[in-house]
Simulated assay, not measured.
Amino acid sequence: MIERLPSNRPPERFYRGGARISAFRNEPAAADFEPEDWIGSTTTIFGEEQLGLTRLADGTLLRDAVAQDPESWLGAEHAARWGSDVRLLVKLLDAGQRLPVHAHPDDAFAARHLGHRHGKAEAWYILQGGTVHLGLTRDVSHAELASLVEAQDVDVLLGLLHEVDVSPGDVVWVPPGVLHAIGAGVLLLELQQPEDLSILLEWRDFALDGAADGHLGLGFDVALTAVQRTAVAREALPGLVRTAPPTGSVFPPDVDAFFRLERVPVEGHVSLDPGFAVLVVSEGSIQLAGQSAPRGSTWLIPAGAGDIVLDGGGEVLVARPPAA
């Protein structure tokens, strides 16, 4: 039941990237605009019917397999509380160029305006470092923000955000509504709520029509109400950006209500707790339930697989939904 997952890279995204994912996975080079690998995905790209979904080795969509047997995939407690809602999307993301300034709505906004079950909280585990931009340095009015978006005053928009250097092993928590942008050269593992909902405030140098597509079909007057316009104090940044501990849970406690990520060093025999998980081998080369699992490989583990034994030397990142 444990399955190694190949790359699942939606083509022709609006920003460049993909080479660092290929190198991390030891795969042939990707196209210039394939900067994301959607791992264990039951989520589609916004407005698409199937693009973004993970397909299992037997050809079944993971979304359909989970819907048919949520207890086997997600566990009895999870299925009793949330049914077949996996409540997790995992991505590898390679910023071949700096991403635009953007934000994501929370659950209430997504339900009220879009009819979606989730908003989009997200958190990152940094694999290759660089610079990220996160949170406003000062309060901004709705009118000022709308004016900057309309004028595409990119320098001012980006200058409103804190600039933070990140290194491998750092983690970044991005609550819904918080403006952010990932700097060029950063490779990260992203955990998020299972939605593709982005409000794009910037599009001048990207392959998209932001005036038409940047507001989730709502118009910017409505979409910008989902954006947090109050400042994030610099002394509060350590609550959003920090170095992960060498083992165990890596995100701040507030994140556990959305999803969980565990850092697991492997030296000899290690047993993982049962439960649905997406596993990424971040270092070394190990044996996963008797299968070879080299660095960069990604794995889908259903709850029904029980305890999972790892052998060898390296490190794995274990992504899970919130605890039921």
Rank of each mutant, 00 (worst) to 15 (best):
E49D: 15
I301W: 08
L261G: 05
V250L: 10
D94A: 06
E144N: 02
P105H: 02
F109N: 04
A79T: 08
L218N: 05
E144L: 02
R87T: 10
A79P: 02
V264K: 00
R117L: 14
V227R: 00
E150K: 09
A110E: 09
V101F: 00
G183T: 10
A244C: 06
A79K: 01
G159V: 05
L201W: 01
E267W: 11
V264Q: 03
Q193H: 10
L93H: 04
L218M: 04
A110P: 03
A80W: 09
S7P: 14
L61M: 10
T230E: 13
V178W: 06
P100L: 02
W173D: 14
T42C: 13
P294H: 07
G284E: 08
P302K: 03
L310A: 10
L300R: 01
K120P: 05
H269V: 15
D205C: 05
S282G: 06
H113S: 11
P194K: 03
W38H: 02
A257H: 11
V232A: 02
L218I: 05
R25L: 12
G135D: 01
L56A: 07
H113F: 13
L191A: 13
Q228Y: 07
Q228F: 07
W203K: 01
P302F: 05
A233M: 08
L218T: 08
A305M: 09
A76V: 14
A223V: 06
E163H: 06
G177C: 05
L216R: 03
R229A: 09
F24K: 01
D139V: 00
V66R: 00
D273N: 12
L62P: 02
L279K: 03
R55D: 08
G296W: 02
V232Q: 01
R25F: 14
P246V: 12
D32F: 10
L51S: 10
F206C: 02
T43P: 03
S141Y: 00
D64H: 04
E49K: 13
V232K: 00
D196L: 01
A65C: 06
R260P: 04
A23T: 12
H162F: 06
E190I: 06
L218V: 07
S292R: 14
L216A: 06
G115T: 11
R295E: 15
P28S: 04
H269G: 12
P274R: 07
T298H: 10
Q97C: 13
H116A: 12
R117H: 15
V309C: 09
H215W: 11
Q287S: 15
R87G: 07
L224Q: 08
Y15I: 11
A305K: 10
G296C: 07
L51D: 09
F109S: 05
P35W: 07
R63S: 14
V172I: 15
P302E: 07
A123D: 10
E36P: 01
L53R: 02
D213Q: 14
G47L: 04
L62H: 01
R16C: 12
